[in-house]
Amino acid sequence: MSDSILNESERMIAMIIGHLADGGVTRQTFSVRELGYEANDDSHRLFRDAVLWLGYEGIIASGYTERKNQFSQKDNTIFARSFFLTSKGFKLLSEKFDGELTLGAAVKEANSNGTGYANAGTFFGGILGGFTKSISG
């Protein structure tokens, strides 16, 4: 996997988790547009794969148990339907990565500074890798 694909994957994952964190445990239907991407084939493919991966890892879940109902399409935009953070997702947000600073606080800080999720992507990527190792082994 090239660095650019890995970086873009980390960024997408960070944006999805950050978006869902803003809603707490409320189920949310959202698309790449809410995450700051243009709706095109590449962003849709990455979006769908990232949502599915986060679901397989148990970090997010959908109110729809059948996978075919977890995504819909309207006006050439793919939507992830009825997703929310799980307890594992909230645990990820509480992980410390820089002294006492948590990942959740870093996302809020990045948003309030107007930098969006781009700077948080590397934080999520590094912690997400360690977190998934800890939950799988």
Rank of each mutant, 00 (worst) to 15 (best):
S2Q: 02
S2R: 13
I5Q: 06
L6Q: 03
L6R: 13
E8I: 08
S9Q: 07
R11Y: 15
R11Q: 15
R11N: 15
M12T: 11
I13A: 13
I13H: 13
I13L: 09
A14C: 12
M15W: 07
M15N: 14
M15Y: 13
I16Q: 14
G18H: 05
H19N: 14
A21H: 13
G23F: 15
G23R: 15
T26L: 14
R27Q: 12
R27G: 05
Q28T: 04
T29F: 03
F30C: 11
F30I: 15
F30M: 13
F30Q: 06
E34C: 02
G36F: 06
Y37V: 09
Y37Q: 06
Y37A: 03
E38C: 07
N40Q: 03
N40L: 06
N40C: 11
D41T: 04
H44E: 03
R45K: 08
F47P: 04
R48E: 12
R48C: 10
R48S: 11
D49W: 08
D49V: 13
A50F: 07
V51K: 03
V51M: 15
L52I: 09
L52W: 12
L52H: 02
L54I: 00
Y56D: 12
E57N: 06
G58S: 00
I59T: 04
I59M: 11
I59W: 00
I60A: 09
I60Q: 06
A61Y: 14
S62Y: 11
G63C: 10
T65G: 05
K68W: 09
N69A: 10
Q73Y: 08
Q73S: 13
K74P: 00
K74G: 11
D75Q: 13
D75C: 06
F79M: 07
A80T: 14
R81L: 01
S82G: 08
F83S: 05
F83C: 12
F83A: 05
F84C: 04
T86K: 10
S87C: 10
K88N: 09
K88S: 10
L92D: 09
S94C: 14
E95G: 05
E95P: 01
F97K: 00
D98L: 01
G99V: 02
G99D: 00
E100Y: 03
E100F: 07
L101S: 07
T102L: 08
L103N: 00
L103W: 02
G104W: 00
G104Y: 03
V107S: 00
E109P: 05
E109H: 01
E109F: 04
E109C: 01
A110K: 10
A110N: 15
N113P: 04
N113L: 04
G114C: 04
G114T: 05
T115V: 10
Y117L: 10
Y117M: 14
G121S: 08
T122Y: 05
T122D: 13
T122Q: 04
T122P: 08
F123I: 11
F123V: 12
F123P: 01
I127A: 08
L128G: 08
L128S: 02
G129T: 02
G130A: 05
F131E: 00
K133N: 09
K133E: 03
S134A: 15
S134H: 04
S136A: 02
G137C: 09
